[in-house]
């Protein structure tokens, strides 16, 4: 099922599909970040992925590009899933919002910005959602000190 969807997607956005991975029955496609809104709209309207079950950011510290945004899609009628990934550069990490495609992306993108520092263009309400309003920094980044910026870094148990 997902195989056909990927073929269909390649037929429509051939140049924008960068990679395709099949692992244990789960299909993942990596696509061009600039085309994400068009691709998501197409997947929703023409492939039936009417539910965005999750949207999250990933930090691959030391790799270029450093960040990824992952969209886990679900087709409620056919019960099939598809994972879409885009690559995001470390300098000025920005992605177009898909909150116009699936409304649930609104809060997911706020969380992604709050904790990972990936900004979303044209987002209706990009505020912090989990951390306090006046928080500095994005704590789920791998280079964020886990005990907070005002503490000495943890050196392991000394005894």
């Amino acid at each position: 099922m997902s195989k056909q969807v990927v073929e269909k997607l390649k037929g429509k956005f051939g140049a924008s599909v960068l990679a395709e991975v099949e692992h244990r029955g789960e299909t993942t496609v990596t696509v061009e970040a600039g085309e994400i809104v068009e691709i998501c709209t197409y997947l929703r309207d023409d492939c039936g992925f009417n539910f965005l079950s999750d949207l999250c950011g990933v930090d691959y510290l030391g790799r270029t590009p450093r960040f990824e945004v992952v969209y886990n899609l679900y087709n409620i009628s056919t019960k099939s899933r598809l994972r879409v990934k885009i690559l995001v550069a470390e300098q000025d990490p920005r992605v177009d919002t898909v909150s116009g495609v699936w409304s649930t992306a609104n809060w997911h993108e706020r969380e992604c910005w709050d904790l990972m520092g990936i900004s979303f263009n044209n987002h209706p309400d990009l505020r912090r959602i989990l951390l306090p309003e006046d928080w500095q920094g994005h704590p789920l980044r791998k280079d964020y000190p886990v005990q907070g910026p005002d503490r000495e870094p943890y050196q392991g148990r000394l005894s």
């Binding site: 951390l131 704590p139 964020y144 886990v146 907070g148 943890y154």
Partner: peptide
């Protein structure tokens, strides 16, 4: 703080 020796 207990086991939660974290930023939050």
């Amino acid at each position: 703080g207990g086991i939660f020796d974290t930023y939050s």
